[in-house]
Computed example of a mutant assay.
Amino acid sequence: MSQNVFERLQSGEIVAFSDPQYNQIGESGLRTSELLIQYNATFEPDKMRRIWGEMSGEPLDPTTYIQKPVFVNHAGFVRVGKNIYINHACTMLALGKIIIEDDVLIGPKVNLISEGHPVDPAKRKALEVKPVIIKRNAWIGAAATILPGVTVGENSIVAAGAVVNKDVPDNVIVGGIPAKVIKYISEENV
């Protein structure tokens, strides 16, 4: 095995809990957890940005604010752009990568889930990952859930409480479970 478990997951491999490298996932998660406790306990924006940078490997832009508490299992797989606001209690399961482009709004209690398990019961105790991408100027409403492999298009809105299991085009509003297009956003409004 020349690749580590993270590279294997990123390449699309399904990794069983019994895999000899699986413990690397837990070790990585512990490092994020230690720093996340500090992040969620501080009230100083500069210190919060510094801690986020330690967790993710990339500094948090001064125009971006991630409200506390935030829950993330592997911050090294989260990329956050500029001029972003993430509200309280956002959960990010990030092994598949979570990319949040510039000018995004994320409401409270949103779930960004890039990790899952195979449907086949014989393989279910394994991990598979796919990226979640939130494109520029999108707005994710309160308590929405974005599932693995989903891209939310530019300027689009995900209604509160929606469960998004497929890509969202640019310039639309989606809602429901599973989320469906409920309205197109006109070019004058973009």
Rank of each mutant, 00 (worst) to 15 (best):
V181D: 01
V132Y: 07
A144E: 06
K68V: 04
E27L: 15
I99P: 05
N165G: 11
Y65P: 01
Q24G: 07
V104T: 05
K166S: 14
M55T: 10
K97Y: 07
T42A: 04
E34R: 13
P121S: 00
D120P: 07
E27Q: 13
E54W: 06
I177K: 14
V158S: 06
I99S: 02
D46N: 08
K180G: 03
N189T: 04
V181N: 03
G26L: 11
D102H: 10
V80K: 08
P20C: 04
Y85T: 06
T145Y: 03
A126M: 06
I99R: 15
K183C: 03
S18Q: 15
G175Q: 11
N40L: 04
P118G: 10
G175F: 03
G81M: 07
I185S: 00
R50Y: 05
V152K: 02
V152A: 02
T91I: 10
V168A: 04
L127G: 03
R124E: 05
N189K: 13
L112Y: 00
G161I: 06
I86E: 00
V190A: 07
N137M: 01
P148D: 08
E58C: 04
N4D: 15
I99C: 01
K135E: 12
A162V: 09
I133K: 14
V190R: 15
V174W: 00
D120V: 11
N189A: 07
A126G: 13
G96H: 09
A144Q: 10
E115D: 09
G76L: 09
Y85M: 02
E54V: 02
I100H: 09
L147V: 12
K135S: 12
F17K: 12
I51P: 00
E13F: 07
K123D: 10
R31Y: 10
E7A: 14
R136A: 09
E188V: 14
T91F: 02
L147A: 12
F6K: 07
K82I: 01
G161F: 04
D19Y: 12
I185M: 05
N87E: 02
I84Q: 05
S114T: 05
T63D: 08
A16C: 11
